[in-house]
């Protein structure tokens, strides 16, 4: 019953994770996809710049991208850019449309619905060639 004082110190002393609104998690995802996309663009500008240096080296570099791992990364990139774009529209509406804050949650579900509707067939077609190469031994 009373007063059994047990010093529980299992959890980090900094405190627990804040159980925030859904909007907080959409913001976290927005930041992560944004930073990921930025790093892609950074690499993309560098590899595209190669074409000015030597078209042959550019071709060779691009050829190294044709493997299943990069294919998965491409799908991740499309997913990240798509989420960032859709949620970006949502954030703009929250800020500039008078009814935006009221419908922020509905807009988040709409964002996710569109994301899945695009990503499911999109990922299928993007992975098709890799799957054929791996399984069917295409040329």
């Amino acid at each position: 019953m009373a007063s059994s004082t047990t010093a529980a110190s299992a959890v980090a002393s900094g405190g627990k994770l804040y159980r925030g609104d859904l909007g907080m998690w959409s913001w976290v995802a927005h930041r992560i996809t944004g930073v990921a996309t930025f790093f892609f663009l950074f690499a993309h500008v560098l590899d595209t710049a190669l074409v000015r240096v030597s078209p042959n080296i550019y071709d060779e570099t691009i050829a190294t991208y044709k493997n299943p791992l990069v294919n998965l990364m491409e799908i991740g990139l499309v997913g990240a850019v798509l989420y960032h774009a859709l949620n970006g529209i949502r954030v703009m509406l929250v800020d500039f449309w008078s009814k935006g804050p009221k419908y922020q949650r509905v807009m988040l579900w709409a964002t996710l619905a569109i994301w899945f509707a695009v990503m499911v067939p999109g990922a299928y077609f993007m992975i098709l060639r890799t799957a054929k190469t791996l399984l069917g031994g295409g040329h």
């Binding site: 804040y18 925030g20 609104d21 859904l22 909007g23 907080m24 959409s26 913001w27 954030v91 929250v94 800020d95 500039f96 008078s98 935006g100 804050p101 009221k102 922020q104």
Partner: peptide, 26 residues
Amino acid sequence: CRTTFNCTDACPRGIQVTKAIQEVKR
């Protein structure tokens, strides 16, 4: 403000905090 809506969820008086911030932005 990054419109995370944590403030609106936390307010014990039910103030639409994020909406108020948005109105000041506008």
